[in-house]
Design a binder for these strands. Structure first.
Length: 607
RNA sequence: CGGGGUGUGGCGCAGCCCGGUAGCGCGCUUGCUUUGGGAGCAAGAUGUCGAGAGUUCGAAUCCCUCCACCCCGACCA
């Protein structure tokens, strides 16, 4: 038998049962909607290496199992959540006019060499060789491949705009994978890429994706915020992150309660806190501050507010002529923002923290007592805007165990060469749009939209012919959603002492039927079975717990898993024609007529 | 990549300092009882003690090398 006829025969065999009618298919699926057939694998204790709640709960609920650092198997319970998230994303992407395709996980090095990212990407990008010793990568993202597709497929302006997306496995060899699914090495991402004839059209594509993301996350029942973001390595000019609000988030979101300003702290501009520089009022004086290194402690020791101190951070820029040393000055209670520092002219080509040796060479003093006054060798000084507007401030004396107070610009040292915004904003700072004060909350980045421009189309010569027959570069955008990270984010946002509280839209099951005395009571068994069929029939995603476990352990399992609606079938209630209903977040259960239950649940799921 | 820590049954841990042939809880199996909030009793099964090399009559325990994992160190969906 040749291969063709073999697969033909197999195809027929597979087709036949389905062709026999819907009942068979229906029963088959109803069967897996029973807990004894499905895989319920809860754990009382979480593995010791699970740090954050979402990680602990996902493992305890049997949704993921670790295979290696940052690499997880998605177990049946977890996969259902992922599939539901993917379904919502697909619907909203399609609605927004994007077209799904699927690009390979393994990609040839040549494409990445074409854009220069083969060299630019660090060890985070996984590189592999095939048997012919040719270089490949495991995709961390797909700009190169999609641009290659676009330049081959799109010749005319008539084919634009176009937006391709796929939902695919990504691999990033994170320096430090952690938090389970929130920062894994292997993960699933939806990435979309738009191609337009010019900037104006590309901006419309960007807006369409932005709106699609808003709809997507709203449908998932998440509380989130879209914030302006830094464009980072991917490049481009316009960018927003979609952040799920959670105290455990890694990102800090800056927003203005009185306006619609919102930005990642990496980007949020810190306005000068005062316009005028106060006149010097104090005399310069050197004060002993033994073993007092942190600004907070110096202020306390000297009996001054911390706002009068200035913190020194020393950077080095490697040049062909050797390392150039820079001194950054921020107010004692402020933090240096490295993204902003990286935009300062002279530091924008890359910088690092200076070594202790370099510091001693230039300041004649060990870190802890550094300052702009009396440096051993000249250094380039960058003052934060706030610092530039200070007078009578305190900084290190460049002598171990001493600080200098009463320093004022112009009088004691020259005005700083460079004044720039190099600090993180803090709550209470004025909003950059002038409409109030800033507030800060934490978030988990689950989506990111970028306006790319022609960065990739230029590098890879992706052009189309316009109406006049002239070749023009396609203008691109790219748009990502972290599918697997969304599961973690949803759990960080929705959980209590008992376990996960999933929004119904992405819960592994919408309703769980928990029968009492399943094995012994024929009436319960029948009522529970009928209810399951009823619910499945009206399109409710329900599961029947037919494991005949003790009530307490079934309740505990489903509360841990986070199924939003629970129906208890017991002889007591059945005698009165009623079933017990309880929402996952409800304090009390209520009794509902049996006949009413499907309609009742439908309403609950819609509401 | 640097600093710190941990590897003992499916999960959580004790034992290691002071070498003497592996133990507890959960889970699992069987039986009886129990049955609306993670049951009780009884009987069981499950370990290359992360890997390799060494010291020793004898190594989970001491020495060396390696590996994996976790935490802390701000290039990301």
């Amino acid at each position: 038998m040749n291969i063709l006829s073999q697969s033909e025969a197999a195809g027929k065999a597979l087709l036949r049962p389905a062709a026999m009618g819907k009942m068979r298919v229906f029963r088959l699926s109803a069967k897996t909607m029973r807990a004894s057939q499905f895989h319920v694998a809860t754990l009382k204790e979480a593995p010791a290496d699970a740090e954050v709640v979402s990680h602990q709960l996902m493992i305890r609920a049997g949704m993921i199992r670790k295979l290696a650092g940052g690499i997880y198997s998605y177990m049946p319970m977890g996969l259902r959540v992922i599939r539901k998230i993917e379904a919502i994303i697909r619907e909203e992407m399609n609605r927004a006019g994007a077209v799904e395709l699927l690009m390979p996980v393994v990609q040839p090095a040549e494409l990445w060499q074409e854009t220069g990212r083969w060299d630019k990407m660090g060890p985070e990008m996984m590189r592999v060789k095939d048997r012919h010793d040719r270089d490949f990568i495991i995709q961390p993202t797909s700009e190169e491949v999609i641009t290659d597709i676009a330049r081959n497929e799109i010749q005319s302006y008539r084919q634009l705009p176009k937006n391709f997306y796929h939902i695919q496995t990504k691999f990033r060899d994170e320096r430090r994978p952690r938090f389970g699914v929130m920062r894994g090495r292997e993960f699933t991402m939806k990435d979309a890429y738009s191609f337009d004839r010019d900037e104006a059209a590309a901006e419309r594509s960007y807006q369409a994706m932005y709106q699609a993301y808003v709809r997507t996350f709203e449908r998932m029942g998440l509380s989130f915020r879209a914030v302006r973001a830094d464009t980072g390595n991917i490049g481009g000019s316009l960018s927003h992150e979609f952040q799920v609000i959670a105290d455990t988030g890694e990102d800090q979101l800056v927003y203005c309660p009185d306006s619609d300003y919102a930005a990642n702290i990496e980007l949020a501009e810190a306005l000068p806190l005062s316009v005028a520089v106060p006149a010097p009022a104090e005399a310069l004086r050197k004060l002993p501050t033994p073993d007092t290194v942190r600004c907070e402690d110096v202020a306390k020791l000297l009996g001054l507010p911390i706002e009068r101190t200035v913190k020194s951070v020393v950077l080095a820029v490697d040049t062909p002529l050797g390392a150039e040393i820079w001194l950054l000055l921020v107010r004692g209670d402020h933090e240096v923002n490295e993204i902003k520092v990286g935009k300062v002219p002279g530091l924008d080509a890359g910088f690092r923290f200076a070594s202790e040796q370099e510091i001693v060479d230039h300041f004649g003093c060990v870190p802890g007592y550094l300052g702009p006054l009396n440096t051993k060798k000249p250094v380039k000084v960058v003052a934060d805007r706030t610092v530039a507007h200070m007078a009578d401030f305190v900084s290190g004396a460049n002598e171990a165990g001493f600080h200098i107070a009463g320093i004022s610009w112009g009088r004691d040292l020259p005005e700083p060469e460079i004044v720039a915004d190099i600090r993180n904003v803090v709550a209470g700072d004025p909003s950059p749009d002038g409409k109030g004060k800033l507030a800060i909350q934490r978030g988990i980045e689950v989506g990111h939209v970028f306006f790319l421009g022609t960065k990739y189309s230029e590098a890879m010569n992706a052009t189309y012919l316009d109406e006049t027959g002239k070749p023009k570069l396609m203008v691109m955008g790219c748009y990502g959603i972290g599918v697997t990270r969304l599961v973690g984010a949803a759990i960080e946002q929705g959980h209590d002492a008992k376990g996960i509280i999933f929004p119904a839209a992405i819960a592994p099951f919408q309703v769980v039927i928990v029968p009492m005395n399943y094995a012994k009571s024929e009436t319960v068994r029948q009522a529970a079975g009928e209810l399951l069929e009823e619910l499945l029939k009206v399109g409710i995603d329900a599961i029947l717990d037919d494991r005949d476990e003790r009530a307490g352990s079934m309740f505990a399992d489903w509360e841990l898993i986070g199924v939003p609606h629970r129906v208890v079938v017991g002889e007591r209630g059945l005698k009165e024609g009623k079933l017990e209903y309880k929402g996952r977040a409800d304090a009390e259960a209520s009794m509902i007529d049996i006949a009413e239950m499907p309609a009742f649940l439908k309403r609950e799921l819609l509401g």
